[in-house]
Nucleic acid binder design. Structure first.
Lengths: 239, 239
DNA sequence: ATCTGAGTTTGATCTGGATCAAATCCGGAC
DNA sequence: GTCCGGATTTGATCCAGATCAAACTCAGAT
């Protein structure tokens, strides 16, 4: 896992990405057909294995990506090894930091994933030329900012139990957007990763999950597959 | 203070804002002279007392602001009263959430402050018409996102001592941007606010400040005025 | 079928920071 | 000047979550 963390994305055996406005997410919806065609000509579709990093903290990245499938985690590591996951990203999110080459965080696939990779130079040019695209990236940035600040509340002020419930709620609502009453989903994160997202230890995460199970708030089919019979109750616990 | 928190900004005795490209910060640098003139015609300069809120969590806000002087805190409050400050903003930051009227946080003056207030409708129109402006707001949003994520690391993974040192370092670098070796500055926050920013209690903040003082890392001239003889040491402690 | 090892759970104990409780400080009203 | 009340510091104690230490689980290798 530590090796995986330092493994930076390298172009492998890419597949040219066909025109796919619907699936390029945030980027393609905002482009003209001509731009889309050019973008596609210079873009690659790539499969990414769980655990491999596509952006490394502290290094320069010369591309952006759109997530087509899978979940990515954005991590910040301290020199002594302490780590904090600062966001999860799901399809069809855009991954990358517009306007700044050097990354202050790493982006790593939490599950097997598929991405579309755009050259930074080309997309930067298109952003400058296309207010629509700028707007759509601006919008994603603002949404991520809202989410980050919401999570700051979780990190700073919620108890371990509330933190775990918040995480399950977050995953449930992203995995099963229809989430009316009940939900069943696969956790894209290991216990260690959950701990790094919640600012807790593995053991505390595990104990809180067990507590929620014993109270009937969740069923743990196996450590990665969770069923939530009553989403309202989970939401209530996450405060 | 609790009353102040719920006190929402109301236009008082505003002063028409003269053309002041340099001082309007993020917004005005990106506008043409004609736009600037129109914006100024519909904008107000306002003094805001420490403690009064210009945006209330959960309510709609029909204006944006630029901070001309002073410090604002962005707060999120839980139903049971727990609170987290999720950002500090300094002149010449832009305050407001483009594209979404209802606010998920409150914005409150931490010190006496002065702002320029723009009507939301007008500025939204200008954003749509002015890629430069969109770009400059996009840029601020991305910088705030970086800052928020950096702070998530502080909240989730740093010790109380590291948290307090991080806060002092943050304030010092904003108050005294030249910050080469030593720095002296006024804290814009009370101990209670510092606690709410760091996810700690008042007592812990106080104890850690005392510890830093006894170690000679800081001098506390009075509870609000701090001298840092050696910024490097402070930075080292904040990890 | 058994072994292996990473991931997870559970148990025992410890501790950093919270909580409860007084002092002390200090700026403003008088 | 004295008094007052909120902010801050300091002290004593507590406890949620960390740490240390085993078990347990289970998918993949042999």
């Amino acid at each position: 896992m530590d090796i995986a963390r330092s493994e930076v994305f390298e172009a492998g055996t890419p597949i040219a990405c066909r025109s796919c406005r619907a699936r390029h997410g945030v980027v393609c919806g905002a482009l003209s057909n001509a731009q889309l065609k050019e973008l596609n000509r210079h873009s690659l579709r790539r499969k990414v294995e769980a655990g491999s990093a596509i952006i490394a903290q502290g290094s320069e990245s010369s591309f952006y990506s759109n997530i087509m499938r899978g979940v990515f985690k954005l991590c910040k590591m301290m020199p002594d090894g302490r780590q904090q996951i600062v966001a999860l990203q799901f399809a069809p999110d855009f991954v990358g930091r517009p306007f700044v080459r050097e990354s202050t965080l790493s982006a790593e696939a939490a599950t097997d994933a598929e991405i579309c990779v755009f050259p930074r130079n080309l997309l930067d040019r298109m952003i400058a030329q296309t207010p629509e695209l700028q707007r759509s990236l601006h919008d994603q940035a603002l949404n991520e900012l809202d989410a980050a600040r919401e999570w700051m509340l979780t990190l700073g002020r919620r108890t371990a139990e509330e933190k775990v419930a918040s995480l399950l709620h977050l995953i449930a609502t992203h995995a099963e957007p229809q989430t009316a009453i009940s939900a069943a989903f696969d956790l894209p994160l290991s216990r260690a990763e959950i701990a790094d997202f919640l600012g807790l230890t593995i053991e505390t995460v595990s104990r809180q999950m067990t507590r929620l199970r014993k109270r009937g708030v969740i069923l743990i089919e196996n450590s990665r597959h969770i069923v939530v019979p009553d989403m309202d109750e989970l939401e209530k616990i996450s405060a």
